[in-house]
């Protein structure tokens, strides 16, 4: 099989689009992280993210975040069209810096939780969730 000029162009365009899409997603995640941390370094440990390893239905995936001593926790779904999931800000009467909720995941991806500690440092936890049926409709 020989490639005509038209075929080659089409192939090249397809590759370019495929390469551009994941790049854009990562750029969104980075932008959300940067907006939350304002460029500070992110450590590990001190935060727990509980999410199922396999979620059959991406429409309701139960997650739980727990970071003792945190003032705020940001949750991101790195593979969603809009990665931001939510931010939990804890007030003076919060009994523990934990919260659980249910989220939507478009497909198999990493869920990322970043906690802002009272002393201004940041820690993160990451967990991969395999999604059988995605939850973004369309």
């Amino acid at each position: 099989m020989s490639f005509t000029r038209r075929d080659t162009l089409r192939l090249a365009m397809g590759t370019a689009v495929a390469a551009a899409v994941p790049f854009k997603v990562f750029a969104d995640v980075d932008a959300d992280v940067a907006a939350f941390t304002e460029g500070a370094e992110i450590g590990e440990g001190g935060i727990t993210l509980v999410a199922p390893e396999i979620a059959e239905n991406g429409n309701t995936v139960p997650i739980e975040v727990d970071a003792p001593g945190a003032v705020a926790i940001l949750v991101l779904a790195t593979g969603n069209p809009t990665p931001a999931v939510g931010t939990f800000n804890f007030g003076p009467l919060a009994g523990a810096q934990m919260a659980s909720t249910r989220i939507r995941l478009a497909g198999t991806q990493d869920v990322l939780a970043i906690a802002k500690m009272a002393d201004g440092t940041f820690v993160q936890a990451r967990q991969e969730v395999k999604v059988t049926i995605g939850g973004c409709g369309g």
């Binding site: 995936v61 931001a84 931010t87 804890f90 007030g91 009467l93 919260a99 989220i103 939507r104």
Partner: peptide
């Protein structure tokens, strides 16, 4: 609680239908 904040959550479209939240308060 009595005018003091316990939790303040910003929610995005990735929160499921019928949003459920569990948290702790003193």
């Amino acid at each position: 609680f009595n005018g003091q904040n316990v939790i303040d959550v910003t929610m995005e479209p990735a929160i499921s239908t019928n949003p459920f939240l569990e948290f702790q308060a003193v």
